[in-house]
Every structure is written in C-alpha cells, then in structure tokens.
Design a binder for these strands. Sequence first.
DNA 1: TCTGGGGTCCTAGGACCC
DNA 2: TCTGGGGTCCTAGGACCC
Length: 417
Amino acid sequence: MYALVDVNSFYAACETLFRPDLKNRPVIVLSNNDGCVVARNAQAKQAGIARGEPFFKIRQRVERYGVQVFSSNYALYADMSARVMAILEGFAPAVECYSIDEAFLDLSGVADLHALGCEIRRCIKRDTGLTVGVGIAPSKTLAKLANHAAKRWPATGGVVDLSDPVRQRRLLAIMPPEEVWGIGRRLGQRIHTMGITSALALAQSDLWFIRKNFNVVLERTVRELRGESCLAFEEFAPVKQEIISSRSSAERLTEYDPVREAVCAWAARAAEKLRGERQYCRYVATFIKNSPHDRHQAYYSNSAGIRLLTPTQDTRDITAAAIRALDAVWKPGPRYLKVGVMLGDFYSRGVAQLNLFDSYAPRANGEKLMQALDAINRQGRGKIWFAGQGTGERWAMKRAFLSPCYTTRYGDLPVAG
DNA sequence: TCTGGGGTCCTAGGACCC
DNA sequence: TCTGGGGTCCTAGGACCC
C-alpha cells in the first residue's frame, strides 16, 4: 500500500508562510526569468490565473485583483521541502522523494490507513505551516488519483484512502482519463477519440488493444489503475543519466563574449552537480537559442556535443569542451536568450590509464582542487568562480519579485513583534 | 518589450554487421 | 511483378512528469 503526500500550491504556500499580511490575498510565483506562472494559491486560481500563463499577458489582471507576485526563490522552497521530507521519514520505513513537493510512502502493514493519513497532515501543518493532501492506494497511479481527489473535494478532509476496490471504481468512474498520472494532453485526446471517456473505462480496456494502439507505458498505467502495482518504489534515487544547466537571461545576448561567459557559468554549475553525483562524464554539449516567440527574427536553436576520450569531473575540462562546442554553433545575428550545457555518458570513476591521444588528460591534484572549490561554494553558492564566467551581470536572469531567503540566510531572518 | 528548467522513457528509422 | 533475415547500436523526436 502506498501513500502519496503532496503540498498544496507548494511555492505559493512557502511565500505566504512568512507573510501573514498576504492571508486571503491572491499569490502567484513565476518561473525563472519571471517568465510564466508556475504556482498559484487558491485565491489566484479563483481570479482565473492559469498555470503556465506568460506573466506579461496577465499584468492587467494582476493589478485588478491585487495579486502578489513572486519570482522563484529556490533556496526557500528547497529548505521547506527538506523539512517536510524529514517529517515524512518519521511516518514510514521507506520514503521516495518524488519531487520537491511530493513523496510516496510505503505503508505496508499499517492497520488504520486513514488515521495515519490524518496524522501526517496534522504534523506537517503543525511543524511547517504547510498543508498537504494524502492519497492512499495499492498502486502509485491510484495513490496519485486519490491525492487528486483529496485536494479537489474539501469534504474529504484532505485524506482519501482507496484501499477498497469499490471506492476505487467509484472514483475512477467520475474521473476523465486525462486526470490520470502519465496521461497528458496528447494522449488524453487520442484516448477520447477512441470513445474512452472515463478513467474507469480506461482501466477496463483490453490490455492488448492498448498496447497495440498506444504503447507499453500506457499499458502499465492501465494495470496500475486496476490496482496492480507496476511502478517500482524507488527509495534511493537511481543514478542520473544526464545533467543539464541552462538559463534564460534578462537581456538578449548579441555579442560572443557574454554568451561565452554564460557557457562557462553553466559548465561550472553542471560540473559541480556531476561531482555531487560522484560521477564522471564523457560527453559535453552546449546549446544556444534565441526566443522562439521573436516575431522579428527567425528561430535559431543549435547544439553541438564533444565526446571526450577520458571521463572527467574537472570543471576546467568540461568548460574547455563546452567552449569548443559553443564555437561550433555560434553565429552572430540572433539575439540569444537561452544558453545551456548538458553532460552525459556517465562513469562512476575516471579512467586511471591515460589515453595517448586524449587532449583532456587528468590534471595533477585536480580532484583536490575541485573538492576545495565545492567546499567553499557549499557555504553559499557563488563564493568562488572561474574568471571566464564574468560577474554574471550580462547574462543574469530576471528576478524582480524575489522574496528573502527567510530560512537559509541570517541576514534574511524574519523579524517578529 | 515580455513565454522556465530539469529530467525520464519509448519508438522509429538508419547504419551496419553476418 | 514479387524485396532475405535477424540482430545491434545510435540518434532524433515525441510524449510525459514536476
């Protein structure tokens, strides 16, 4: 039996935690570069603001309804997430942190599932101020659906236990297929055109038919809806297969130098993440693009990859390769908006034997240097950086509505009284 | 003027091999 | 009129998730 616990309007809720003056006011949180809406509280949803809407399109509504706007404050959300996860660890022998605001709990052997769900809710509210929904079911997909129901119908008290097959069927019957986890817009449309209009109808579809007309992924979803657990519980995060660091910039970049600075910055960040995973990579790619929405310019998006002969985790090797890749795709003209670096082809260790033809030979004391660098930057990101990154002024992202880091920076501690 | 970032998995198709 | 069959590896693209 699984529980899915997830925080209601997580980013928006974090922002209001330390702002009691915002009680009952609409609040939204924007994506990086203040691009579009990624989170809304209940009042903002009532004001008709949709998730994913570009900010510039809703400016009028924001003013009319007095919506409080925030830029993404990832330091705050990550810290609040860690607090929620720590509480959940106390409730189950195994917890899978599925995303920043949700986790699956293994509830095997628990007698009173509904009571446990209520207790989880109560404790998280008491210790963090955040409200969670709890969905309980014999498969992850059903637990997701139960969680969805817990949020949608307040009468449930925020906890829905679907261990009873009769209740499963009752909920499935009133849910459209596109509300099911793993079914997005495209699949939802195709499923509807086949005359399947409820999650229950989908669950009762012939498996062979689904596999033939769709794929094995949807077949698994159908099995999960029937209560057959097909998705593994992953207490320990599997090893990453790729790492991407990229960002849009507030200013459009038309010169080579600032683009190169951004490439250096994202290469360094990606290398830092790679070392955090204790991995070495053999593939480094750089991509650059202008805005696909620019009406005065053709869309230009290009990437190039470099394959190294020796796996590395040294920022200097990765930066050098990323710049070589940049030079393969750089052309003057486009007003560049987004620059990024991707790492792939991971190994759990570097190759001890030096390849005769490799220009990226391991450097003397490189590991120790990187360790020192990471140790310094763990005390606060950006304390030490490579000169190639520049100061960041030219490629920084827009964050006009950033809140204080209430819980992670002494200078930003909220004042009481 | 202004539209996010970071991932995963699956499939189709081409290159190549015997 | 009339294509061999079976396999692997790689990449691009599509779909999904939060």
